[in-house]
Design a protein around this nucleic acid. Sequence first.
DNA 1: CAGCATCCCCAAAGATACTG
DNA 2: CAGTATCTTTGGGGATGCTG
Lengths: 110, 110
Amino acid sequence: MKSIYGQCPYATTQRVLQGKWAIVILFQLSTGTQRFNELERNIPDITRAMLTRQLRQLENDKLITRKVYAEVPPRVEYSLSEMGEKFRKVLDQIELFGFEYIKEIEKAEG
Amino acid sequence: MKSIYGQCPYATTQRVLQGKWAIVILFQLSTGTQRFNELERNIPDITRAMLTRQLRQLENDKLITRKVYAEVPPRVEYSLSEMGEKFRKVLDQIELFGFEYIKEIEKAEG
DNA sequence: CAGCATCCCCAAAGATACTG
DNA sequence: CAGTATCTTTGGGGATGCTG
Protein backbone atom coordinates (compact mmCIF):
# COMPACT_ATOMS: atom_id res chain seq x y z
CA MET A 1 0.00 0.00 0.00
CA LYS A 2 1.16 3.42 -0.90
CA SER A 3 2.08 5.93 1.76
CA ILE A 4 -0.61 8.33 2.89
CA TYR A 5 1.95 11.10 3.26
CA GLY A 6 2.22 12.11 -0.36
CA GLN A 7 5.47 13.12 -1.97
CA CYS A 8 5.59 16.84 -1.16
CA PRO A 9 8.19 17.47 1.54
CA TYR A 10 6.51 20.73 2.54
CA ALA A 11 3.03 19.30 2.94
CA THR A 12 4.49 16.33 4.75
CA THR A 13 6.39 18.48 7.21
CA GLN A 14 3.40 20.72 7.71
CA ARG A 15 1.37 17.67 8.64
CA VAL A 16 3.76 16.35 11.27
CA LEU A 17 4.07 19.83 12.76
CA GLN A 18 0.33 20.08 13.27
CA GLY A 19 -0.72 20.78 16.78
CA LYS A 20 -0.13 23.90 18.79
CA TRP A 21 2.91 22.56 20.65
CA ALA A 22 4.73 20.26 18.25
CA ILE A 23 7.66 22.57 17.53
CA VAL A 24 8.07 23.62 21.14
CA ILE A 25 8.12 20.02 22.35
CA LEU A 26 10.62 19.02 19.68
CA PHE A 27 12.83 21.89 20.77
CA GLN A 28 12.59 20.89 24.41
CA LEU A 29 13.62 17.36 23.59
CA SER A 30 16.40 18.63 21.35
CA THR A 31 18.03 19.94 24.52
CA GLY A 32 18.02 16.44 25.94
CA THR A 33 15.83 13.66 27.27
CA GLN A 34 13.04 14.84 29.53
CA ARG A 35 10.44 13.26 31.75
CA PHE A 36 6.76 14.05 31.51
CA ASN A 37 6.75 16.44 34.42
CA GLU A 38 9.84 18.22 33.20
CA LEU A 39 8.18 18.93 29.89
CA GLU A 40 5.08 20.11 31.68
CA ARG A 41 7.14 22.52 33.77
CA ASN A 42 9.24 23.70 30.86
CA ILE A 43 6.28 24.47 28.65
CA PRO A 44 4.16 27.08 30.41
CA ASP A 45 0.45 27.15 29.53
CA ILE A 46 0.29 23.60 28.23
CA THR A 47 -2.23 21.41 30.00
CA ARG A 48 -1.51 17.85 31.06
CA ALA A 49 -4.10 16.47 28.66
CA MET A 50 -2.70 18.46 25.74
CA LEU A 51 0.85 17.43 26.54
CA THR A 52 -0.17 13.79 26.56
CA ARG A 53 -2.01 14.05 23.28
CA GLN A 54 0.77 15.93 21.56
CA LEU A 55 3.40 13.48 22.78
CA ARG A 56 1.33 10.56 21.47
CA GLN A 57 1.00 12.26 18.12
CA LEU A 58 4.71 12.92 17.80
CA GLU A 59 5.38 9.36 18.83
CA ASN A 60 3.03 8.03 16.17
CA ASP A 61 4.76 10.21 13.62
CA LYS A 62 8.08 8.64 14.68
CA LEU A 63 9.67 11.89 15.77
CA ILE A 64 10.09 11.07 19.44
CA THR A 65 10.74 8.00 21.54
CA ARG A 66 8.93 7.05 24.74
CA LYS A 67 10.75 4.92 27.26
CA VAL A 68 8.93 3.54 30.28
CA TYR A 69 10.86 2.34 33.31
CA ALA A 70 9.25 -0.29 35.50
CA GLU A 71 9.74 1.59 38.74
CA VAL A 72 7.74 3.01 41.58
CA PRO A 73 7.06 5.84 41.27
CA PRO A 74 6.74 5.52 37.50
CA ARG A 75 9.34 7.08 35.27
CA VAL A 76 8.80 7.84 31.60
CA GLU A 77 11.42 9.50 29.48
CA TYR A 78 10.93 11.22 26.16
CA SER A 79 13.65 11.91 23.65
CA LEU A 80 14.16 12.61 19.97
CA SER A 81 14.01 9.53 17.79
CA GLU A 82 16.46 8.99 14.98
CA MET A 83 14.00 10.79 12.74
CA GLY A 84 13.57 13.51 15.31
CA GLU A 85 17.31 14.07 15.31
CA LYS A 86 17.08 14.87 11.63
CA PHE A 87 14.72 17.68 12.57
CA ARG A 88 17.40 19.54 14.51
CA LYS A 89 18.53 21.55 11.51
CA VAL A 90 14.98 22.73 10.96
CA LEU A 91 14.77 23.73 14.61
CA ASP A 92 17.97 25.72 14.32
CA GLN A 93 16.61 27.73 11.41
CA ILE A 94 13.26 28.15 13.13
CA GLU A 95 15.03 29.62 16.13
CA LEU A 96 16.96 32.09 14.00
CA PHE A 97 13.86 33.05 12.06
CA GLY A 98 11.73 33.33 15.19
CA PHE A 99 14.12 35.73 16.85
CA GLU A 100 14.33 37.85 13.70
CA TYR A 101 10.57 37.87 13.43
CA ILE A 102 10.03 38.89 17.03
CA LYS A 103 12.62 41.63 16.71
CA GLU A 104 11.07 43.09 13.56
CA ILE A 105 7.47 42.81 14.69
CA GLU A 106 8.18 44.47 17.99
CA LYS A 107 10.03 47.24 16.21
CA ALA A 108 7.09 47.71 13.86
CA GLU A 109 4.55 47.66 16.66
CA GLY A 110 6.57 50.10 18.70
CA MET B 1 1.78 47.93 24.19
CA LYS B 2 3.69 44.74 24.40
CA SER B 3 3.74 42.29 21.52
CA ILE B 4 1.24 39.47 21.59
CA TYR B 5 3.78 37.10 20.09
CA GLY B 6 5.71 36.28 23.22
CA GLN B 7 9.45 35.85 23.24
CA CYS B 8 9.78 32.18 22.33
CA PRO B 9 11.02 31.85 18.76
CA TYR B 10 9.57 28.34 18.48
CA ALA B 11 6.08 29.22 19.69
CA THR B 12 6.15 32.30 17.51
CA THR B 13 7.10 30.38 14.40
CA GLN B 14 4.56 27.69 15.18
CA ARG B 15 1.91 30.37 15.30
CA VAL B 16 2.70 31.93 11.94
CA LEU B 17 2.86 28.49 10.35
CA GLN B 18 -0.63 27.62 11.51
CA GLY B 19 -2.99 26.64 8.77
CA LYS B 20 -2.88 23.63 6.55
CA TRP B 21 -1.17 25.36 3.63
CA ALA B 22 1.14 27.99 5.09
CA ILE B 23 4.39 26.16 4.41
CA VAL B 24 3.36 25.08 0.93
CA ILE B 25 2.36 28.60 -0.05
CA LEU B 26 5.58 30.04 1.31
CA PHE B 27 7.50 27.50 -0.72
CA GLN B 28 5.56 28.34 -3.86
CA LEU B 29 6.32 32.02 -3.45
CA SER B 30 9.94 31.23 -2.68
CA THR B 31 10.20 30.08 -6.29
CA GLY B 32 9.05 33.49 -7.45
CA THR B 33 6.13 35.89 -7.59
CA GLN B 34 2.84 34.25 -8.46
CA ARG B 35 -0.66 35.36 -9.27
CA PHE B 36 -3.71 34.03 -7.47
CA ASN B 37 -4.64 31.57 -10.17
CA GLU B 38 -1.10 30.32 -10.51
CA LEU B 39 -1.03 29.47 -6.84
CA GLU B 40 -4.39 27.79 -7.14
CA ARG B 41 -3.12 25.64 -9.99
CA ASN B 42 0.21 24.90 -8.34
CA ILE B 43 -1.38 23.74 -5.10
CA PRO B 44 -3.64 20.81 -5.87
CA ASP B 45 -6.53 20.22 -3.48
CA ILE B 46 -6.64 23.74 -2.10
CA THR B 47 -9.96 25.49 -2.51
CA ARG B 48 -10.31 29.09 -3.62
CA ALA B 49 -11.74 30.14 -0.28
CA MET B 50 -8.96 28.46 1.65
CA LEU B 51 -6.29 29.97 -0.57
CA THR B 52 -7.75 33.42 -0.01
CA ARG B 53 -7.90 32.98 3.76
CA GLN B 54 -4.42 31.57 4.01
CA LEU B 55 -2.97 34.36 1.87
CA ARG B 56 -4.66 36.98 4.05
CA GLN B 57 -3.26 35.35 7.15
CA LEU B 58 0.27 35.27 5.79
CA GLU B 59 -0.11 38.86 4.70
CA ASN B 60 -1.26 39.90 8.17
CA ASP B 61 1.71 38.08 9.63
CA LYS B 62 3.96 40.09 7.30
CA LEU B 63 5.39 37.08 5.50
CA ILE B 64 4.06 37.86 2.05
CA THR B 65 3.27 40.92 -0.01
CA ARG B 66 0.14 41.49 -2.06
CA LYS B 67 0.35 43.78 -5.04
CA VAL B 68 -2.78 44.81 -6.91
CA TYR B 69 -2.57 46.17 -10.44
CA ALA B 70 -5.33 48.47 -11.60
CA GLU B 71 -6.07 46.58 -14.77
CA VAL B 72 -8.91 44.80 -16.45
CA PRO B 73 -8.99 41.92 -15.97
CA PRO B 74 -7.61 42.30 -12.47
CA ARG B 75 -4.10 41.19 -11.69
CA VAL B 76 -2.85 40.46 -8.20
CA GLU B 77 0.65 39.28 -7.50
CA TYR B 78 1.91 37.62 -4.37
CA SER B 79 5.51 37.41 -3.33
CA LEU B 80 7.65 36.90 -0.27
CA SER B 81 8.03 40.00 1.88
CA GLU B 82 11.35 40.97 3.37
CA MET B 83 10.39 38.91 6.39
CA GLY B 84 9.29 36.07 4.16
CA GLU B 85 12.70 36.08 2.52
CA LYS B 86 14.20 35.36 5.91
CA PHE B 87 12.10 32.23 5.99
CA ARG B 88 13.92 30.70 3.01
CA LYS B 89 16.52 28.98 5.17
CA VAL B 90 13.76 27.32 7.16
CA LEU B 91 12.15 26.18 3.93
CA ASP B 92 15.41 24.68 2.75
CA GLN B 93 15.74 22.60 5.88
CA ILE B 94 12.08 21.63 5.78
CA GLU B 95 12.57 20.34 2.26
CA LEU B 96 15.58 18.26 3.26
CA PHE B 97 13.79 16.92 6.30
CA GLY B 98 10.59 16.22 4.40
CA PHE B 99 12.35 14.13 1.80
CA GLU B 100 14.19 12.18 4.47
CA TYR B 101 10.97 11.63 6.34
CA ILE B 102 9.10 10.40 3.28
CA LYS B 103 11.94 8.10 2.38
CA GLU B 104 12.14 6.54 5.84
CA ILE B 105 8.41 6.24 6.38
CA GLU B 106 7.88 4.59 3.03
CA LYS B 107 10.69 2.18 3.75
CA ALA B 108 9.16 1.38 7.12
CA GLU B 109 5.68 0.94 5.68
CA GLY B 110 6.99 -1.27 2.94
C1' DC C 1 -9.46 37.13 -12.69
C1' DA C 2 -9.56 37.25 -8.07
C1' DG C 3 -11.86 37.27 -4.93
C1' DC C 4 -15.92 37.60 -0.72
C1' DA C 5 -20.10 35.89 2.03
C1' DT C 6 -22.23 32.21 4.27
C1' DC C 7 -23.38 28.07 6.22
C1' DC C 8 -21.99 23.99 8.37
C1' DC C 9 -19.29 20.54 10.54
C1' DC C 10 -15.93 18.25 12.87
C1' DA C 11 -11.44 17.80 14.90
C1' DA C 12 -8.51 20.19 17.94
C1' DA C 13 -7.98 22.27 22.09
C1' DG C 14 -9.51 23.71 26.96
C1' DA C 15 -11.45 22.42 31.57
C1' DT C 16 -12.11 19.33 35.09
C1' DA C 17 -12.00 15.20 37.64
C1' DC C 18 -10.24 10.70 38.48
C1' DT C 19 -6.31 6.70 38.80
C1' DG C 20 -2.67 2.60 38.47
C1' DC D 1 4.59 10.33 38.63
C1' DA D 2 2.36 10.01 34.64
C1' DG D 3 -1.05 9.64 32.93
C1' DT D 4 -6.95 8.67 31.49
C1' DA D 5 -11.68 9.87 30.88
C1' DT D 6 -15.12 12.90 29.74
C1' DC D 7 -17.40 16.99 28.56
C1' DT D 8 -17.53 21.35 26.43
C1' DT D 9 -16.00 24.88 23.44
C1' DT D 10 -13.65 26.95 19.65
C1' DG D 11 -12.41 27.89 15.29
C1' DG D 12 -10.26 25.89 11.23
C1' DG D 13 -11.56 24.28 7.08
C1' DG D 14 -14.87 22.31 3.34
C1' DA D 15 -18.73 23.42 0.19
C1' DT D 16 -21.36 26.44 -2.36
C1' DG D 17 -22.85 30.50 -4.60
C1' DC D 18 -22.30 35.32 -5.77
C1' DT D 19 -19.51 39.62 -7.70
C1' DG D 20 -16.60 44.01 -9.01
